[in-house]
Design a binder for these strands. Structure first.
Lengths: 211, 211, 211, 211
DNA sequence: CATGAATGAGACTTCATTCAT
DNA sequence: GATGAATGAAGTCTCATTCAT
C-alpha cells in the first residue's frame, strides 16, 4: 500500500540520519543503511534512484519544519519574544532529535558538493533571513537597539546557537540544549533590550540577576 | 635533502587542505592530492604511512598556532583587549588563509571518526578553555560583568566567530572576515563593558557610535 | 480478454524492437520496455516468463513474413523477377519499418548467445537458401549465367542488401531503401542477364531500361 | 618500464576483442576481461580509466591499418587491381584474425551508443569513401563502366565483403575468407570490365543514364 | 627515493526475476 | 491479473595501500 511505501521510504531517511550521526556524512553508504534497515541495497534504490536523492531527502527532512517555525514566529505578539521563540523552537526540535545536529554540522561539507550546494546555502540563508526579519521587526518596534546592525545581531544569535549545537554534540548531549540555548539567548536579548531602554532614558535599574 | 623532504611533506599537507577546501573532507583522496602535487600516490605514502596520518598532519597544521596565539593573548595588558586580540588573531589567520576554514567547518564530521575524535575535541575545547580563561580574567578584573556566566559569554563569542566563518565561506569570502568579526565582537564587548560600568554606577554614555 | 492479452503481448514485442533500435540490443532492459509500455516490469513477466522469451518473440516477429515472402517469390513466373521480387519485398518491409533493421544488424551479436544462436543462424541460412534456390532456378532456366557459382551470386545480392540496410541506418533513413536497393539489384541482374544472353549469342542491347 | 606498460595495455585490448568475439559486445565486462588476463579488475582501470575508453581502444585497434591499407591501394598501378587489392587486404587481415570480424559485425550495435557513434560511422564511411575513390578512378580510367553509379558499385563490393564476413563467422571460419572474397570479387570485376570492354567495342551505351 | 603496477575491499547502481497482495 | 516491494548477482568504478624496480 501507499502507507507502507511511505513508511519504508521514510524509515530509510531516518536510518540514514542515524548513520550520518554515527559515522559522519563522508561515511554514509547505501550498504550500511541497508544493513541497518535489514533490507537489500537494491531495495534502497527502489525508493531513491540515486544515493544523492536519498541525501536530498535527508536534507529536506532536516529542514521540513523551517517554514512552519518561521510562520509561527511571525505570529508571536511580542517581537522580542518572536526572536526568542524562533531559536527555542529549533533548540527544542534538536533537543528531541539530537542526531539531527549531525546534518546541521555538515553544512559546510555538504556545500562542497555542487549537487547540494544550492539547497544547503538556500536553507542556511533562509534561516538567517527569517531571523533577520524578526530582529529587524523588534528593532523597528524600538525593542531592540538600532545602533547594532541587524546582521550583526543575527550572526551573534544564530552563530551562538549553531556553535552550541556542536558543543552539545561534543559533550554527548549531556546538558539540555533547549535550556542552555534559551537561557543564554535570554541574557543576550535582555542585555540589548535593557541597555536600549536605559539609553533611551528610562530610569531602570539595579537588581536584575541572571543567576 | 632533508629540507626538500620536509618541504615536500609540508606541501602535501597544504595541497590536502586545498583539496578539502574544494571537495570537502569526504572527498579527499590520495589520488587527488598526488595529482595536484604532481607526484605519484605512492610518494605520499613515503611521507605518511597511512592516509589518516596525513589527515592528522592536516589537523595539526590547522592548529599549529593555537599555543602561540593563546600565549600572546595572555600577554596582553588589558584583559578585555586580550579577548578581542584572541579572536582577531584567528580572524586574521583565516582571512589570509581562507581554505583553512574548511577544516574548522569539518570538525563535527571529523569527530565522527574515532581516530580523530580526541584530537578534534581536544583542539575545540582547548580553544574554548583559553577563551574562557581570558573572559574569566576580564570578569575578575571587573571589566566584564559577572552576572553572565563565563561559559555563556564564551559561547556567544566563539559561536559567533565560528558561524561567521561559515557564512564567509558561503559568501565566497566576499567580505573581510577580520573586519566584520572584530567590529561585531567590539560591539558585543563594548555592550558588556559599558553596561557593566554603568550598572556599577559610572555615569557615562555619550557619544559611542557603532556605525 | 484474450484479444487484449495478445494485444498487450504484441505491443510489448513492438516496444522492445523500438528500444533495440534506439539503444541497441545490449541495452534492452525489461525496465525500459516497461517504462515505455507504461506497465510494471512484473507485467512483462506475465507475458514472457523470461527476458529471453521476449527476445525470442522479437526474433520470431522479425522473421514472421519469411515463409510468406519465400512462398510468394516462388510463385513468380519469371525466375529473374522472382529474385528481384524476393529482395524488394524485404526492402519494402524494412522501408516501412526501419526499426526492424536494428534486429537485422544485430544478428552477429545475438548469435553469440547460445540461446539464440540456432534461431539466428537458422533464419540467416534459410533466407540465403531461399535466395539460392531462386537464383539457381534462374540459372537452370538459362536466365542467369552458370559460370558464376550460385553461392557467389547469392552472397553478392544478399550482402549488398544487408549492407545497404546498415548504410541506410547510418544515414538516418534519408534515402529510400526500397528504391535504391531495387535499382541497384536491377543493374546487377541486368548485367548478368544481358551478359549471359550476349555471351550465349543473343543479339541484344537495344533498349533495356534500368528504370 | 614503458614497454611492459604498453604490453599489458595492448594485451587487455586483445583480450577484450576475444571476449567480444566469444560473448558479444553486449556481454563484455571488465570482470571477464580481468579474469582472462588474470589480473584484477582494478588493474584494467589503471590502463583505461573507463570501460568505454577500453572500447574506444578496441575500435581504434580494429581500424589501425585503415590508413595504411588505403594508402597502399592508391599506390597500385592498375586501377582495377587497386580495388581488388583494397578488399583483399582486409580479407587477408580478418582471415588471420577472425575475432576481428566480431567488431565489424557490431558496428550497428556500437553506433547506438552516442559515445561511439561518431567513431564508428567515421570508420564506416571512411572505408566507403576510399573504395569509392578507387572505383571512381577505375571508371575514369575507362576500366570500369560509367553506366553504373560509383556508389552502387561500392555498395555491391563492400556489402558483399561485409556480409561474407558474417557468413564466415556463422560457418565457424570453415572456408578461406580471403580466397572466397577475392575470387568472388574477381568474378564481379571481370564481369564489369569485360562487359565494359565489350560494350566499348560494340557501339552501345548511349541512352540510359543513372545520374 | 620515486614510481608504475597491482590489488582487495567496497562504493554505487542496474538487472532480471519473484512474490505477496 | 497487475503491481509494488524486494532481492541476489553482477557491473562499473574508486580507494588506500603495497611492492618490485
Amino acid at each position: 500500500m501507499d502507507s507502507s511505501h511511505l513508511h519504508r521510504k521514510e524509515r530509510i531517511v531516518l536510518t540514514t540520519i542515524d548513520v550520518i550521526d554515527e559515522f559522519g556524512i563522508h561515511n554514509v553508504s547505501t550498504r550500511e543503511v541497508a544493513r541497518r534497515e535489514k533490507i537489500s541495497e537494491a531495495a534502497i534504490f527502489r525508493h531513491f534512484s540515486k544515493k544523492n536523492d536519498l541525501l536530498h531527502a535527508v536534507i529536506d527532512f532536516f529542514a521540513r519544519y523551517d517554514d512552519d517555525i518561521a510562520a509561527s514566529a511571525f505570529l508571536q505578539d511580542d517581537p522580542v519574544e518572536a526572536v526568542s521563540y524562533y531559536l527555542v523552537r529549533y533548540a527544542e526540535y534538536y533537543n528531541n532529535y539530537p542526531q539531527m545536529t549531525a546534518i546541521l554540522q555538515s553544512f559546510a561539507v555538504l556545500a562542497c558538493d555542487p549537487e547540494f550546494s544550492d539547497k544547503i546555502t538556500g536553507i542556511y540563508f533562509a534561516r538567517l533571513k527569517v531571523l533577520e526579519e524578526l530582529v529587524s521587526r523588534a528593532q523597528e518596534a524600538g525593542r531592540l537597539p538600532r545602533w547594532i546592525a541587524t546582521e550583526q545581531l543575527v550572526d551573534l544569535i544564530w552563530g551562538f546557537f549553531q556553535s552550541v549545537c556542536l558543543k552539545w554534540r561534543f559533550c554527548s548531549y549531556k546538558f539540555s540544549l533547549k535550556e542552555y540555548a534559551s537561557a543564554t539567548l535570554q541574557v543576550l536579548l535582555d542585555l540589548f533590550t535593557n541597555f536600549h531602554r536605559r539609553s533611551v532614558g528610562k530610569g531602570y535599574d539595579e537588581g536584575f540577576d541572571y543567576r
